[in-house]
């Protein structure tokens, strides 16, 4: 460790922010899994809801991307 303490803080923070990506993955999996469960119960209604599925996945994934962005900012921009 030859960097200063602030840089160490940046890297630790970036790593912690990376956890958010995993959390977003849980969220996306939850959305897709519940969609599949519902779709298997009522397959005729599933076709019309794929747009909703993608919107849900997009919202869940956006937050993961935010955490990734925070990590990137800590690594390269701060």
């Amino acid at each position: 460790m030859e960097g200063d303490i602030a840089q160490m803080g940046q890297f630790i923070g970036a790593g912690l922010a990376g956890i958010g990506s995993g959390a977003a993955a849980i969220g996306v999996g939850h959305v897709a899994g519940n969609f599949l469960a519902g779709a298997l119960r009522n397959p005729s209604a599933a076709g019309g809801q794929t747009a909703t599925l993608f919107i849900g996945i997009a919202f869940a994934e956006a937050l993961g991307i935010f955490s990734f962005l925070v990590a990137l900012l800590l690594m390269f921009a701060v």
Binding site: A58, F59, E61, A62, I65, F66, F68, L69, L72
Partner: peptide, 16 residues
């Protein structure tokens, strides 16, 4: 904000 960062972030993340 989320609309723009979702697209930009996804593409940037993948490429990075």
């Amino acid at each position: 904000v989320s609309h723009s960062i979702r697209l930009g972030g996804n593409i940037m993340a993948g490429h990075a």
